[in-house]
């Protein structure tokens, strides 16, 4: 038996390229490191497989499978259409309420799911965290990437629907990538902040449902940004969700871009992302010790 194994193991020849050997220095982390892009590149295969795992596993052992990616936002759209469109009769600047809410709910569904998953990423991955090293940044960023899969499917459905409603794509679509990047950055920024907090204080998990609900009503998802009073609009625009949601509307429905909401949103998002990265990096060294 042993000889058999040994004969097998002989195949393994180590590649020892002494010139290419890198030196790893291990010391108490200073806490002011920026992102190590070189290291992230080395781990890109791992990153890919972890994202892919999250996508693959999400609807495992379900009857409806991928249909859930469509059903979840769809059900919410229907509920909102009935409650806010038919019952409360919220003003939508003349757009059918169904479409009005769909184009907002789809990025919102993505963002809320990505934020929740990202904020819990270190806790759900704590076993991995304590057993093997790879850049910790991969944990909160993975859901941000993985949820894009669902988003892509929903976005496709929306495009089909708008053709059905005779709203044809306009040149406004050019800016769609910008809003997608913005949407991902907001989720990543919040995810970085909250995941680093959540591993130290589990309060985050309990507060998350309220935070998400508050965020939803703080953004023009069920209502239109134009219903905000003139004097408060700048303050309102500091919520980065406002710019993204209104931006998506303008993109997909061909209405004029509300840049006065979008610019502050971009700046706030940038600050959120950078500060989140910094906070995460600073706390990174203690993650394993506080699990």
């Amino acid at each position: 038996m042993i000889d058999f194994i040994n004969s097998k193991l002989k195949i393994l020849k180590p590649k020892l390229n002494s010139e290419q050997e890198k030196i790893t220095v291990i010391e108490p982390k200073s806490g002011w490191q920026l992102i190590d892009f070189k290291e992230l590149r080395e781990y890109r295969d791992l990153f890919f497989f972890i994202v892919w795992r999250d996508v693959k596993v999400l609807y495992a052992q379900t009857i409806l499978g991928l249909s859930w990616a469509i059903l979840q936002p769809l059900i919410q759209i229907v509920i909102f259409t009935i409650i806010f469109g038919k019952v409360a009769k919220i003003s939508t600047d003349g757009i059918p309420y169904f479409l009005f809410s769909s184009v907002a709910i789809i990025p919102w569904t993505y963002m809320s799911q990505a934020m929740v998953a990202s904020s819990q990423s270190l806790i759900t991955g704590q076993n991995l965290l304590g057993k093997v090293y790879f850049p910790r940044l991969i944990f909160p960023i993975t859901p941000v990437m993985a949820k894009m899969f669902d988003f892509g499917i929903s976005l496709f459905i929306i495009l089909v629907l708008s053709v059905y409603y005779h709203i044809l794509p306009t040149w406004n679509l050019i800016f769609l990538p910008l809003f997608i990047v913005l949407m991902m950055s907001i989720s990543a920024g919040i995810g970085l902040w909250l995941s680093a907090l959540a591993i130290r204080f589990r309060d985050v998990k309990h507060a998350m449902p309220f935070v998400i609900r508050m965020l939803m009503y703080s953004a023009p998802i069920v209502y239109s940004a134009s219903s905000i009073r003139e004097g408060y609009r700048f303050l309102y625009s500091l919520n980065p969700l406002v710019g993204v949601i209104e931006g998506f509307r303008a993109c997909l429905l061909g209405t004029p871009y509300p840049w006065q909401y979008i610019w502050p949103g971009i700046i706030v998002t940038f600050i959120l992302l950078i500060s989140g990265l910094h906070h995460f990096k600073r706390m990174e060294r203690v993650f394993v010790d506080v699990i």
Binding site: T24, V25, I26, E27, P28, Y133, V288
Partner: peptide, 18 residues
Amino acid sequence: KILSKITSPSFGRAEVRG
């Protein structure tokens, strides 16, 4: 765990080749 970078040391320094 320190040598495999899972956790960082409180003091001291290590270098690992390869």
